[in-house]
Amino acid sequence: MIITKKKDGTSLTLVLEGRLDTMTAPRLESDLRSSIDGIEKLVLDFASLEYISSAGLRILLSTQKIMNKQGSMVIRNVNEDVMDIFDITGFADILTIE
């Protein structure tokens, strides 16, 4: 999985490419943990994300909880497969998906 970070003041955009699963999730987690301090608007671009596993969902959930306290989190360009997973797991209700 390739993670591209773009920081603009207090807003941070992460573009994810590939599969977010048990193997790659820890990298996203440490990436987020190191750069999320002081961010008020977090944008996750899922245009090139092929697959998300429960390990990936766990990071979305913990990140959402952090962002609830310090600003907002938006997920963009979610494809059909990933959206299905969000729907089935009920994540669609708690995430802001554009």
Partner: peptide, 9 residues
């Protein structure tokens, strides 16, 4: 209809 996962919120 799905509900949200357990232990999430």
């Amino acid at each position: 209809k799905p509900g949200f996962v357990l232990a999430g919120m």
